[in-house]
Write a protein that binds this DNA or RNA. Structure first.
Length: 637
DNA sequence: GAGTTTGAAACT
DNA sequence: CAGTTTCAAACTC
């Protein structure tokens, strides 16, 4: 391993700012950083200073640290995570006021009501509540890299005895076993001033070794992490593009998608963002790995974040490319070449490994590229340019693709506002599906029953945005367009005709038109659901797609099938959902225009209500919490 | 593991 | 926008 050169802005310099770090094993470890890592760390540190991120050490008031309470570890984690979100939230060692390390980052949360509550009686504490409070407290802090790793901790010396300085942005503790580092906790270690540097680090190591893995094995922690690790594992993500413009904490938030109740284990997900390259240098997965798992990679590389949950004040950070380390469960055994893939998982993008040969992993053919992540060694790709070292190229290509299709890198699956089931042609409710694929599929032969189908692969039902044929998606069929129904009906008519011919032995003077489907017949076919009968007056009008003419999804779909299609993509899905509730809308612009009109009709001016009731089944579903409001729409129709 | 099938992406 | 080609994943044997 080459020794990085210190440029004065590097992590090394950062670590050296601590008196204790100068001779510490951490600084030794700094010298063992690869140039790339060192460069990233350097950029990160530099960005921190440039962007006025507080580099002041985190100081936790020692009275709140009870190292004798083994179970308090999780609470320390909570604090650590919360503090990491707050990055720079400092507590005075002697009083309850936060140290003014960076005024704008200071919060009202004081040690007494924050740290103390968390540590005082962790066994009795309601972790969910605490976590929620912690997260809430942390999220109040803007502009800060929300995560850092336990490996980012160094200890320093402070004037006040018994206090511990946690310095962020330093380096990995070399003493910690990898598996312990993976526990991903910012461990707070109480050391005394008279201890030597090595003793301190040893103590940290000892503490970590003895406590981290043990104490993170709380039920809820393990429950979550077993699932998350199996599904998501540990990945190393690097954010593309400078996210300095998006300094909000969410941009650096590496929490997974769980709610506050599961925030305790989640907070172990830490990341250090290199703001210059927008790279997450080190991320440690949220918690614990079984002791029997030996990880094949350097703990330095261990990282993750769940990019799907990133948000920047509600907005997705535009570019979230990520470089990641393989999942141990799935990727460890992977080798170049064929392997089992887990392209989609329920809550994350899973472990994507590509096998690209010609695309150089710079096209959407490449699932890694499409997912916004860098390829990794376990990918079987050839001539891969989807690597951090080609970041500029990747970004250029990405921009070009986004110019063509702004939604190209949007999440493939769009969650629906409510968890309403799709409705099959026969009116039966299909598997409830809370999400739809953003583009929809165009399957012709797979019947949307194989992973060729993007919807099926994403475990979502097909939507009206799909152009699939003979959809049998087990997660939810799409409604059949009228032209297909008409086609079927014509076929049926021809069959009838032929049957009649056979039966009668002759047919005279008649044409097939005599047996062409009437609109009434089309209504019967295109409105297979009970709802349709209640609106049987609403003959599907292909020429006047008024709200009143299209009372349900089938009719809306009928219009679509008649050539009045919505545009594809996410907008389509959202708009489609909107249109289904509205009754029908023939195109996006009409939908947009009619939204306000419908709000006027409904009288409450709440367009979100439309989204909440995007499925027509809600209209007639008794007991639906939205029934009253929706039924008013139905009555209007 | 090789070959085939499939459908999305890219291209025209 | 539709048709064709390219591509890589999914699938089959």
């Amino acid at each position: 391993m080459e020794s990085p050169k210190s440029d004065g802005n590097s992590v090394e310099a950062c670590a050296a700012s601590s008196p204790s770090a100068q001779k510490s094993p951490f600084s030794k470890f700094l010298n063992n950083l690869s140039p790339i890592k060192s460069a990233r760390a350097s950029r990160y540190t530099q960005r921190l200073s440039e962007s006025s991120f507080p580099t002041t050490p985190l100081v936790f008031s020692s009275p709140h640290l009870d190292l004798h309470q083994e179970t308090s570890f999780l609470k320390r984690e909570e604090i650590a995570a919360s503090s990491s979100q707050a990055h720079g939230k400092c507590y005075s060692p002697s009083n309850s006021a936060p140290i003014p390390c960076n005024q704008k980052h200071l919060q009202s949360c004081s040690p007494s009501d924050f740290v103390g509550e968390c540590l005082a009686d962790p066994l009795k504490a309601d972790r969910a509540q605490n976590a929620e409070r912690l997260v809430q407290s942390a999220t109040d802090v803007p502009l800060l890299p929300s995560c850092f790793t336990a490996s980012e901790v160094t200890i320093g010396k402070v004037d006040v005895t018994n206090d511990v300085i946690i310095e962020v942005g330093a380096q990995t503790l070399p003493h910690l076993a990898k598996k312990h580092l993976l526990s991903g906790s910012l461990c707070l270690v109480q050391v005394s001033d008279d201890q030597s540097i090595d003793e301190r680090s040893d103590k940290i190591s000892e503490f970590s070794s003895e406590n981290i893995c043990d104490h993170v094995e709380s039920d809820d922690f393990l429950e979550h992490n077993e699932a998350s690790q199996h599904q998501r594992g540990i990945r190393r993500h690097l954010q593309f593009e400078a996210t300095l413009d998006c300094k909000c904490d969410a941009a650096f938030n590496c929490h997974t998608s769980s709610g506050p109740g599961t925030a305790v284990p989640e907070v172990g997900d830490h990341v250090v963002i290199d703001h210059q390259s927008s790279e997450a240098v080190v991320v440690v997965n949220g918690g614990h790995l079984p002791d029997n798992i030996e990880l094949p990679w350097d703990s330095q590389k261990v990282s993750c974040f769940d990019q799907q949950t990133l948000s920047c004040n509600g907005k997705m950070p535009g570019q979230q490319f990520a470089d990641r380390v393989e999942e141990p469960s799935q990727c460890q055994d992977s080798s170049k070449g064929k392997r089992q893939r887990e392209t989609y998982t329920d809550e994350s993008e899973g472990c994507k490994l590509c096998n690209c040969k010609r695309s150089k992993c710079l096209k959407l053919y490449c699932e890694c590229f499409a997912a916004g992540i860098y390829c990794v060694d376990y990918c079987a790709c050839e001539n891969c340019f989807n690597k951090p070292e080609y970041e500029d190229t990747v970004l250029d290509i990405r921009q070009q693709i986004e110019l063509r299709n702004p939604l190209a890198f949007a999440p493939a699956v769009v969650k629906q506002a409510n968890d309403s089931p799709n409705v099959a042609d026969d009116g039966n409710s299909m598997t409830p599906s809370s999400a739809r694929h953003k583009r929809g599929c165009k399957c012709k032969r797979s019947k949307c029953l194989k992973k060729y189908c993007e919807c099926f692969r994403a475990k979502v039902g097909c939507s009206d945005g799909c152009r699939c044929e003979d959809c049998e998606n087990s997660f939810g069929k799409k409604s059949e367009p009228i032209f297909q129904r008409e086609k079927k009906l014509k076929n049926l008519s021809h069959e009838k005709l032929n049957t009649a011919e056979i039966m009668s032995g002759s047919i005279k003077g008649g044409t097939a038109n005599q047996f062409s489907p009437t609109w009434e017949e089309l209504v019967d076919i295109s409105h297979p659901t009970p709802l349709s009968h209640s609106h049987s007056r609403a003959v599907p009008s292909l020429t006047s797609p008024n709200l009143g003419d299209c009372p349900n999804d089938s009719q809306a779909q009928s219009q679509k099938g008649s050539g009045l299609q919505l545009s594809p993509g996410y907008l389509h899905w959202c708009s489609s959902a909107l249109s289904r509730t509205q009754g029908c809308v023939s195109n996006v612009s009409r939908e947009l225009d009619s939204t306000s009109a419908l709000c006027d009709i409904m009288g409450d001016g709440s367009p979100e209500i439309l989204m909440e009731n995007s499925n027509p089944t809600n209209i007639v579903k008794a007991g639906s919490p939205n029934q009253k409001r929706v039924s008013s729409t139905a009555s209007i129709i």
